Amino acid sequence: MSENATSRGLDAQGCIQREGSLARVPHAFRPVVAAARDGLLEVFGVRLDSAYLYGSVPRGNARVGRSDLDLLVALRQEPTAADREATRTLGEALDKEFPQIDGVGTLLYGRSRLLSELETHDLGWFVACLCTPLLGEDLAEYLPRYRPDSLLARETNGDLALLLPRWRQRIADVENAEYAAEGRRPLVRFMSRHLVRTGFTLVMPRWNGWTSDLAEMAEAFGAYYPERAEQMRAAAVLGYEPRGDSAVLRSYVDDLGPWLAEEYARVHGIKAPRPD
């Protein structure tokens, strides 16, 4: 058994170890990463503070043609609408050029937001523990070490109740679109992953560790909530292999999601309000 398997993603002090590295990027995805790096430099130039990879690509378990490329970009100032549009355009170009990936997702923030006190146990933790440096200064140097405690659980996923109305609207928008089936698939993938991760962080302090593997997350959750275990296992499968199923989406916003939001608030409390 590997050291990571026995430590559950924690170091000798019980803090969450940073996952991923550029050395783990599979060979097939290295041209994609290089093009993303060059594209970000071209789009933002000196305004770019730092950029990171996260997700399956830097963890080394990305699947050709099925995994997406996940990026986080920090600018020296707060991003504008034009910056977000440029980021979206770059992502679409990368997705079109490289069949190895199934979409590009980019988070765009200002440096000050990522290092703010409000975001220390949410975006700050995300940068320090789940993101792999790609360009610029590593902001993790300015952030603390993190333990899998209730504070981290609350601040990462304690806002599900606020998200559910937006999810219902997104589902309605997709159902009213001309190509509804095509639009449902990415929604199923996104919502499945979000619910599994929320279920995992609900039990994370008791499980005492960190993992980004959806199947392992679902099993950890199921050990504490056996009555919901099969739902979470099914969501973990759909997080990797989504299908455009309206019934799945409805079950998320009408059953699993509301129950999980209520239980999360009971156990960990509500996430501190954000300006957006």
Rank of each mutant, 00 (worst) to 15 (best):
D173G: 11
D95S: 15
P58F: 05
A153V: 02
R88F: 08
L160T: 01
C131L: 06
T87M: 15
R113N: 04
A161S: 13
E97N: 09
L114R: 02
R170H: 06
A62K: 07
A36R: 15
L118E: 11
G103Y: 08
D95V: 06
Q100K: 07
A161Y: 02
G91W: 01
R37Y: 04
L41E: 13
P58I: 03
D138L: 00
V57L: 12
D95E: 14
L115W: 04
Y142W: 00
A36Y: 12
L123W: 14
F98R: 11
V73L: 12
D102F: 10
G39Q: 03
G65V: 07
R59V: 02
D68P: 03
D49Y: 14
V174A: 14
T132Q: 07
T89H: 07
P79V: 01
A34F: 04
I101L: 09
E155T: 01
L115P: 02
T132L: 06
R170E: 08
G110C: 08
A35G: 03
R111E: 05
G105N: 12
T80G: 03
G124I: 01
A51L: 09
G65Q: 08
D38M: 10
W167T: 10
N157I: 02
E137F: 07
L162A: 15
A140S: 12
V104R: 09
F126A: 04
N61Q: 13
R111K: 14
R37D: 08
S50N: 12
V104P: 04
L107V: 02
E92K: 13
R37G: 06
E137Q: 13
A82S: 09
L134H: 07
G91R: 03
V57K: 09
E155C: 01
D49M: 08
R76Y: 00
A51G: 13
L151P: 01
